[in-house]
Amino acid sequence: MRTMNEEKKEKTVLITGASNGFGMEFAKLFARDGYNLVLVARSTDRLKKLAYELQDEYQLPHVCTITSDLTRPESAQEIYDAVRSSGIKVDVLVNNAGAGVHGFFHETDLEREQAIIQLNVNTPVALTKLFLRDMKLRNEGKILNVASLVSFMPSPLMAIYGATKAFVLSFSEALTNELQDTNITVTALCPGASNTMFFRRAGATDTRAANGTLSEPADVALDGYNALMSGEMRVVSGMMNKLQASASGVMSDSSLAATMRHLMEEETQQQEERETTHEQV
């Protein structure tokens, strides 16, 4: 008879954006529980370092790294083909990679935002389509899509990011309904502002949100992991974020947008506006 750990070692998880932040923490959690890993990110060096460390620490039979720029439309098919050609069966898919850009929509760069839409929406959809078909044939599998607290509300000054994360949540919950009579589950993880590289890469390090109370990536990943393993449809990570998500159901969209704009404005900008108002008075 096989032990539980031996059975887990037969399972494989594919994680996008695995080289840092939530993705790295997800990799550690799955490795701890004996899952073989397929780690995907743009940074070859960081990926290989993480893969070596986890394989060595947990004595995993198989750890595979795939260097891929997920803003490329063809990336999902390339990843799927590489996995299939290696004879790997993906039991769990974690669509974690994502990005945003800070600023007024009429001032931000369109090409960059189109790349963000590809990364946050099109590539996860394609990966889900490709791997879900295989899961459906086996009638078994799990998918975790990383959405956001802003999935519940308009997000001025990060309009594209907020819209993509609203899509991710809606998409995930629709799939949950479609798959309700199967042994496949889809879970949406909705974290709030977190201590990752997100704000720096988005050019939003001076915003109120970035300089407020931030969740730790390990805590967020653990919430997502536990919800995924329990087959939950959605999890909001963090008590304060849960309260904000609940409040979004009773507040008007205009009030939500005003709150999010306040959080996403730069503190220096707020000071300048206060000084201007004082001069006018």
Rank of each mutant, 00 (worst) to 15 (best):
L50H: 04
E57Y: 03
K49C: 07
P61D: 01
Y58W: 04
S68Y: 03
K48Q: 15
T71P: 05
L60R: 01
Y52P: 01
E57N: 07
D69N: 14
T65H: 07
Y58L: 02
E53Q: 14
S75T: 08
P73W: 09
A51C: 12
A76Y: 08
T71C: 10
A76H: 03
E53H: 08
C64S: 13
K49T: 09
R72K: 15
T71A: 11
E74T: 14
S68P: 02
L50T: 11
S75F: 05
S75L: 12
E53Y: 03
L54K: 04
K49H: 05
A76Q: 06
C64M: 15
Q59T: 03
T65R: 11
L60V: 02
K48M: 08
Q77H: 13
E53K: 14
C64T: 15
Y58P: 01
D69H: 04
Q59F: 04
Q77I: 09
D56A: 06
V63W: 06
Q59V: 03
S68A: 14
P61H: 00
S75E: 07
Y58G: 00
K48F: 02
D69E: 11
A51V: 07
A76I: 08
Q77A: 12
Y58D: 02
A76L: 08
H62D: 04
L70G: 01
L50R: 06
A76R: 05
Y58M: 03
T67N: 14
V63R: 01
H62T: 06
L70R: 06
K48T: 12
P61T: 00
Q77P: 01
Q59P: 00
